[in-house]
Simulated assay, not measured.
Amino acid sequence: MMRKLSIFLTMALSAVVLLSGCGSSGSKGGSDTFKVGMEAGYAPFNWTQMDDSNGAVKMEGNAEFAGGYDVEIAKRIAEGLGKELVIVKTEWTGLPPAVTSGKIDAIVAGMSPTPDRMETIDFSDNYYQSDLVMVVKTGGKFENAKTLDDFNGAKVTAQLNTFHYSVIEQIEGVNKQTAMDDFPAMRVALESGVIDAYVSERPEGLSASAANSNFKMVELEEGFVTAKDETAIAVGIKKDSELTDKINEILAGISEEERTEIMNMAIKNQPAAK
């Protein structure tokens, strides 16, 4: 009787081990995936659409797809790592906590490696360098502005928790408005006349004017004073992650010509501005 019981227990244990092994090998989680966080609302870096056209990638947990420059860069990183790309739509303010907690592996979201952010997360080498511009209404009072002084008295805003918002104070006499959550909200506010202008980076300014004829990007002859790292774009990664060196190696293999081509295609393929 004891021998039969022993055989039964051995068989049962073997079945548990076998099932456990099958479960782990069939999973698409863990080391098989590269989870990237982005807000999917900052065209042409990243945006939301409802199909997979122009190379968009389905986002985790919903029926939407993410497209844009960041998505194309994330694809190349995932391919270089030999992993499946998973896009996790995340609010802008939630991105650093998400990568710190391990909910995502990296932030590829048009994020600048500012000193404040580097206190909590690490960054890769830059994968884009830009300049600050103002986005105004076509035909409006500020469409021919040349310098910051021309925005004296203007109602100006920028995205919440970005250095874009802090530089507004460089405009003498500006009517600084409350920071907004995202760029779609700022575009709506600009078109409706709630604000006169918002601060952005050149790709987003090009994107706004290309997608909606009511918007105009203003490149200033005498513009904002910024540090180089404030207008650079890099991948955000958890502190001391082994991914940093690997991502830098992959980014080094993307030429400036290819990066420019990717950005030009992103501007061309973006959805119409809301």
Rank of each mutant, 00 (worst) to 15 (best):
F123W: 01
G110T: 05
S31F: 06
I233W: 00
A211Y: 05
K239V: 00
E64R: 11
V167C: 12
V188H: 02
E219K: 13
F142R: 09
Y198S: 01
T138Q: 15
K103N: 12
Y128F: 04
F163K: 09
S209K: 11
Y127W: 00
A74T: 09
T10N: 04
M59Y: 14
P115F: 07
S166H: 15
N264E: 14
L132E: 10
M59G: 15
V133Q: 03
F45M: 10
C22P: 00
E258A: 11
E64Q: 15
G140S: 09
I73C: 02
S20Q: 13
D181R: 08
E119A: 07
G153F: 02
E169L: 00
K58D: 04
P113D: 03
A98E: 02
M11P: 13
E258F: 12
A273G: 11
T93Y: 08
A234E: 01
V57S: 06
V17D: 06
I73P: 08
V36D: 09
A189G: 04
I7D: 06
A234L: 03
K246I: 05
V136F: 14
G41H: 13
A185T: 14
E60A: 15
D240E: 13
A234H: 00
G102Y: 05
M50Y: 11
N46W: 01
T10R: 09
T244D: 09
E261D: 13
A185L: 07
T93D: 12
Q270W: 01
L9K: 07
A252V: 14
D150C: 04
E64H: 15
Y128L: 05
A15G: 07
T178H: 08
G193N: 03
E256A: 15
I168Q: 06
K58A: 07
M2D: 07
T157L: 04
V199A: 05
E91D: 15
A179L: 03
N161R: 00
L81H: 05
D131C: 08
N214Y: 06
G68R: 03
S31Y: 06
L148H: 08
T162R: 07
A74S: 06
A109Y: 01
M2E: 12
E258R: 12
S27Y: 05
T157Q: 03
F34C: 12
G102Q: 06
E221M: 12
K137H: 06
T147C: 03
M59R: 14
E143F: 01
A40Q: 14
V99P: 01
M2V: 09
K246A: 07
A227H: 11
A78D: 10
S255F: 13
T10K: 11
F65M: 15
V199L: 03
Q49L: 08
N214T: 02
E84M: 08
D245S: 14
N175T: 04
S112H: 12
A74E: 01
D182Y: 07
V174K: 02
G37W: 10
D51W: 00
G253R: 08
G29H: 07
S24T: 15
L19T: 11
M217I: 09
G102R: 04
K176I: 13
K176L: 08
D181I: 12
S255C: 13
E219L: 14
D52L: 01
H164Y: 13
G223R: 02
E79K: 01
R187G: 12
G173A: 00
E79D: 07
I237R: 00
K4I: 15
K274A: 13
S53L: 06
